[in-house]
Design a protein around this nucleic acid. Sequence first.
DNA 1: GAGACATAATTGCTACTCGAAATTATCCAT
DNA 2: ATGGATAATTTCGAGTAGCAATTATGTCTC
Lengths: 192, 192
Amino acid sequence: MSPRSPAALEAAHLIDRLERLARLGEDEPLNAAQWEALRYLARANRFSRTPALLADYLGSTRGTVSRTLAALEAKGYVERVPSARDGRSVELALTKLAEEAMKRDPLLALAEDIERATGDGAAALADALRRTLRHAIARNGGRAFEACFSCRHFRAGVHASPRAPHHCALLDEPLSDADGTAICAENEPAAA
Amino acid sequence: MSPRSPAALEAAHLIDRLERLARLGEDEPLNAAQWEALRYLARANRFSRTPALLADYLGSTRGTVSRTLAALEAKGYVERVPSARDGRSVELALTKLAEEAMKRDPLLALAEDIERATGDGAAALADALRRTLRHAIARNGGRAFEACFSCRHFRAGVHASPRAPHHCALLDEPLSDADGTAICAENEPAAA
DNA sequence: GAGACATAATTGCTACTCGAAATTATCCAT
DNA sequence: ATGGATAATTTCGAGTAGCAATTATGTCTC
């Protein structure tokens, strides 16, 4: 519980501060939780866009998420469609309005700041943060929610179809290139 | 508003996610804003511990901060002492209870994760993040709130007294070593 | 030094948010 | 068929955020 390195502690404070600054740039009539929900839905693959998984991602309760989604739906950012596979479940989709809003996501401004500050060191920064995230996940036992292609169930290029060349061995579903880069609730990082 | 580098965008998402994970670890009966306030007060020098500057740091209004502080005072984490220098102002101080709570700050756990994930690369990570913060500050015109010794008004070792060897040329006040590492609302980074 | 104006902090008020618990509907295993 | 899990929602109460108004104090000008 006590880091020995002052640099690591400073980095933690900086992460905290950068996130808050990014939040101040949120212009749309959306609160922080609603932004986070949109970001998740924009990046999650089609198997992962449900209220329950969103609640897992956000680390909040299903009740709260249900409210968040109701607010987003009322404002026209999200649609809730009953699932064809599971009568209890709902599939979430972003509207055009949300797609437009995501182009003004303050995280994009943060990404620009990173780019300007680090130049081609951005990859090293992302690496360090990704490794940190894995430690954090391991520590508190949550889901990784990493990109599909990094998962141990991902099988690259096993189908002839150019539209869905990859495959998920867990869900037994063909995957497009775009699917591969989306985040997945079932992601289990490939063996270290 | 659109970063060219996928790595920078991923890094921004990771910062966002790490911050949220850290927040989930908050155990005390304190909300996110209250934790942020305690963190600021724990790190700010004696010239910077006022409600108005805290509001600047948090990017929220003075009214909101006043309520946050009232909640913290009611729970025994903060004391509000009328300022001797300015009858309108209040000086804020952490109680023993708060000092204890800071030892369980979830940011410490994040710092540990960083340490484990990056090893001696933590300094490079902190550097990259600090540079990013400066860009973010420059972009939205806020205060830097960086460490006193990094300021252009800081004069190192100009006093004979070992208890306060340094000096602030802006406030014309002697500074201890501890003062030098605290964050200051008046900080203006030394010339690039 | 009196008045005008700026600043520090707080409070009244309203709208909103969160989470725990209860509720409803559906799925699945036996 | 039935009991138990799971998905989503709703009810309800406590707490929070921010705008605007208020009070008190400092500062500048003439």
